[in-house]
Computed example of a mutant assay.
Amino acid sequence: MQTAAEGQTDVWAPWVIAADGAGGPDRLAGQLAEAAGEEGLERLLTERKGILLRGFGITAQDLDGVLDLLLPNRLAYVHGNSPRTKVGGNVYTSTEYPQEFTISMHNEMSYAHQWPSRLAFYCERAATTGGATPVLDAALWLGSLDAEVREAFRDGVRYVQNLHDGYGLGKSWQATFETQERGEVEAFLAGAGADWTWKADGGLRVGQLRPATVRHPLTGTEVWFNQADQWHPAGLGDETAARLAAILAPDELPQSVTFADGSPIPAAYVEQIRDRGLENAVDVDWREGDLLLIDNVLLAHGRRPFTGSRRVLVAMSG
């Protein structure tokens, strides 16, 4: 069964597989296998970009088994920059960013040397109001940007993180890398091609040069694939950016971004990237028990503001 988001038919939306009958994990597995056919789930997901599994009555107790089907090799959120809590076997809260704010569009960990190829979101508890997860065709996002912006990012971007040692703004290096051992962090960063410096206060400064676009490994489709707008102060809004600028120098921010050569990215570029991403996104309005599986290269995602006690979990695989 395929539908567009909430009845729209003139725009792309995740493919919906709705429970045929009583639902449950076994029924979900059967319907998903039938939809995937002989070519398998990877090919189906590449074709559809996103799949919404709805009405199967999946509970938190069912989740590990279902995720074993959707994401056979779940990854830890190592070097992730978003605040979240680990709640199971490489299952995390989707974010703990304040609920009154929008989270702009992004492909998960596009700033890292390796990123997950696939994400699965699970709605344990829907918001009272709002709280949709917008999803966006990342090729459409690239095409929506002015040629001047695309050209400016041709050589990629440089990300910089200042990770504290347990107290400060942003995340600690211990939480970011899920370890207390400096040697493990250094080995990870060396393998990632990053540069780093241990600071006198025990914190860690990390720099990484990454591309602004990538091509999907199966389709060859070029997509916008960076988080410049989320790492740049202009992406935070004027008021928040001004508050940070009043207390921190640019090179002391928890995270920042420049062009590959170290030159500043104009605020107008950042605002265009952020705004056109959100304008072209399609909202997935959650119902409890829903699962959303997405290709993390072909689709970006975000979060709309909400009220209530929304709880959406996420897991990822290579």
Rank of each mutant, 00 (worst) to 15 (best):
E6N: 13
V11P: 00
V11W: 06
A13I: 03
A13E: 01
P14Q: 07
A18P: 00
A19R: 06
G21M: 03
G24E: 00
P25R: 10
L28A: 10
A33W: 03
A36D: 10
G37C: 02
L45D: 03
E47T: 06
R48K: 14
K49P: 00
R54F: 02
F56T: 12
G57C: 09
A60M: 00
D64F: 05
L70K: 06
P72G: 06
L75Q: 05
S82F: 01
K86H: 08
G88A: 15
G88L: 06
G89R: 15
N90R: 10
N90T: 08
T93E: 07
S94I: 01
T95S: 15
Y97Q: 08
I103Y: 01
S104A: 15
M105D: 01
M109P: 01
W115V: 06
R118C: 06
A126D: 05
G130C: 08
G131Q: 07
G131M: 10
P134M: 11
S144N: 02
D146M: 06
D146W: 04
A147E: 14
F153P: 03
R154N: 04
R158V: 11
N162V: 13
H164V: 07
D165A: 15
G168S: 05
G168T: 06
G168V: 04
L169R: 11
T179R: 05
Q180P: 03
E184Y: 02
E186G: 09
A187W: 02
G193P: 05
L209T: 13
A212I: 00
T213L: 05
V214K: 11
H216A: 09
L218F: 12
G220S: 07
E222F: 07
W224L: 15
W224K: 09
F225Y: 14
A228N: 07
Q230M: 13
Q230K: 02
P233Q: 06
L236A: 03
D238Q: 13
E239Y: 02
L244W: 00
A245R: 08
A246G: 07
P250S: 11
F259S: 03
I265F: 10
P266S: 05
A268S: 14
V284T: 09
R287L: 14
L298M: 13
G302N: 11
R303Y: 04
M316C: 15
S317Q: 15
